[in-house]
């Protein structure tokens, strides 16, 4: 379970995230939707202890992220702006992460195989394509076999096979009673994957509920999204 209570983050006087509260339940995939600059990444970063909130609290499995003793065994995260050093090999990136949380070394090989990167394990990350880098990020998130996954745009850069793999994997993951929070701006992809959705715009939550409830009265999740975000500064076009 993930719980955000009145999270607020300001840059200068401008609030990037304003009084955001939500709950993400286990056994379901929750989409975290919003236009660029809506506050999705900042919210996730506060949730994972990377950014300090000006107000409010974020709890994961009932604790602040920084209070988790071996966090990678509880939460797996893929975040934009939290990646490997390009000169390091993929396997080395996973091995140091595993060591830091007392995860057996063999698990690094297992997750590489899971995401189809075994052949590129000894390659330096700077030689990876965008999709391979994304697969490595997903492998890192799965390293501790965590109960909770927090993924920021996980299908970004993946080919259709990769996208389908992520979708099926997350469905199975949630079906086994685990928690998945999935940030995205791809409406069709989210509609095909998530059970619930949280919509954020202009730093505030504008909708939170099941996908069916949010889409009710609209043609699709996409139309609902534009209707919800337009009122709070969402872009109507190019």
């Amino acid at each position: 379970m993930i719980e955000a209570v009145r999270l607020t983050k300001r840059y200068g006087k401008k609030p990037a995230v304003d009084d955001v509260s939500f709950t993400v339940r286990p056994g379901r995939i929750t989409g975290f939707l919003g236009p660029n600059g809506a506050g999705k990444s900042t919210t996730l970063r506060m949730l994972l202890g990377l950014d300090h909130p000006d107000d409010g609290t974020a709890l994961i499995a009932g604790q602040r992220y920084r209070d988790l003793r071996h966090p990678l065994r509880t939460v797996g995260a893929l975040l934009d702006g939290a990646g490997p050093v390009p000169e390091r090999r993929g396997i080395d990136h996973l091995v140091w992460m595993a060591q830091s949380n007392r995860i057996p070394r063999r698990r690094a090989h297992e997750v590489l195989e899971l995401v189809g990167l075994t052949g590129a394990a000894r390659q330096r990350v700077k030689g990876y394509s965008l999709g391979m880098g994304q697969r490595l990020g997903i492998a890192a998130a799965l390293l501790g076999d965590p109960e909770i996954l927090v993924l920021d745009e996980p299908v970004n850069g993946l080919d259709p096979d990769g996208i389908r793999w992520v979708r099926n994997f997350l469905r199975e993951y949630a079906a086994s009673g685990r928690t998945v929070l999935l940030s995205s701006h791809l409406m069709a992809e989210t509609a095909g994957t998530a059970d619930d959705a949280i919509v954020i715009a202009g730093g505030r939550i504008v909708a939170h509920g099941s996908l069916d409830d949010i889409s009710a009265g609209h043609e699709s999740l996409e139309s609902a999204f534009f209707a919800l975000t337009a009122e709070r500064g969402g872009r109507g076009g190019w």
Partner: peptide, 19 residues
């Protein structure tokens, strides 16, 4: 200095969040 390249610090803090 490696910590401040390509978001490595973020990954380090995800693994070891106690500063």
């Amino acid at each position: 200095g490696q910590e401040f390249r390509a978001g490595q610090l973020g990954t380090s803090l995800l693994a070891v969040p106690r500063r």
